[in-house]
Design a protein around this nucleic acid. Structure first.
Lengths: 210, 210
DNA sequence: CCTACCGATCGGTAGG
DNA sequence: CCTACCGATCGGTAGG
């Protein structure tokens, strides 16, 4: 029972923390956004850091709740990776401000809160790493010198989405997820070695330049 | 003649702004790092924001100075893109703290300072967009539904590097740049459609197809 | 480069 | 949920 007032405080704080960052958002800013004085906020929340923690943890739990079932399903590994990429994009695009907070403001959590959040962040990237390893083991993916670097590269593309995505833009989260999955799985080159034969996916065209 | 004291202030501020962010770094923090009191800093710098501006602009100028000659060279477009990706990675990896400041703390610049920085940031991504367009026009790259999305995806991978790279890690910036270029240009799949037969393209390095 | 200080603002609380 | 307030800290300055 978050009492509605508490929910409105969380929503306002999410937007303000995402826009200006945690340290430069004052309790007076949050109060103004919800029509209360700074001191009155403490009837609904226990501290500024508790608000930050709840924003981040809510977002991370929703993210892991979507990601882990995909990664642990019984589909082929490369399809699981593609689905995970798309799910990641669609989640951060539909929660841009919350994602910005979760990705950048966790540094301002104190000791134990920060450790719990870091563990959950690690669970997400570890899930990506497992499915990548299975993709390589099965021979569907090329081996790479360092799987960790590949994972960081993929997560970079995905975690950067909240920096530029706008719901007012021309592309839907689904379209963005699809195109970024194509980029990461298929690359940009038209013909790594050669290009004809059965196409697994119906994309664009092969070799008609200009 | 930045007077050495000014240089030491810039260096300390780069590290502190990168670690804690601009708003939660006080002039007293910076003073402590260089062995001065907060008030004494103002003999060497004009304001806190001027320090932030100089850190960001120095980094961006170095970045554009490395990137633009590569993008505008007369090599084939796909080789220019590969070289640009590698240069980007190597620059941010060799200036991690400065890159973190340039990528995230520019939001705290006021009106006109912020506009000038945004223009320079745009110059970098526009250069990437031009070379990507040429890669597609020449037929070396597959067409994509939205080149903007592809550029944002690439820059995400590259701009995320300062979040995880450590000079104490096992991989050198060169190795990381090479592997991320392979990821973005060649993708992860071992065989997009089919993978044998004659190579239609006489590329010097491409990927050593591990 | 320090002493000494300015007004403003911070997160949070007491008491109603 | 407000009034009234706490001690701490902020960026920056005057004067030497």
């Amino acid at each position: 029972m978050p009492s509605e007032s508490a929910e409105r405080i969380l929503e306002a704080a999410t937007r303000l923390f995402g826009e200006r960052g945690y340290p430069s958002t004052s309790m007076r800013d949050i109060g103004e956004a919800v029509g209360l004085l700074a001191g009155s906020l403490y009837s609904h929340i226990s501290s500024k850091e508790a608000v930050l923690l709840q924003i981040i943890e809510t977002g991370l739990d929703r993210y892991l709740g979507a990601l882990l079932p995909i990664v642990e399903s019984d589909q082929p590994a490369d399809e699981r990776l593609r689905a995970a990429v798309k799910a990641h994009v669609e989640l951060v695009a539909s929660h841009v401000e919350e994602s910005l907070v979760a990705l950048h403001q966790w540094k301002f959590l104190g000791g134990e809160n920060r450790q719990r959040i870091e563990a959950k962040r690690h669970a997400g990237s570890a899930a990506f790493a497992r499915v990548l390893a299975e993709c390589i083991e099965s021979g569907v993916f090329k081996p790479v010198p360092s799987p960790d670097i590949t994972i960081s590269g993929i997560l970079g593309t995905l975690n950067w989405v909240p920096e530029w995505y706008s719901p007012k833009g021309p592309a839907t989260p689904e379209e963005i997820g699809e195109q970024l999955a194509d980029l990461l799985l298929g690359g940009l080159l038209a013909s790594p070695p050669a290009d004809d034969g059965p196409k697994p996916r119906p994309k664009a065209n092969s070799s008609k330049s200009r």
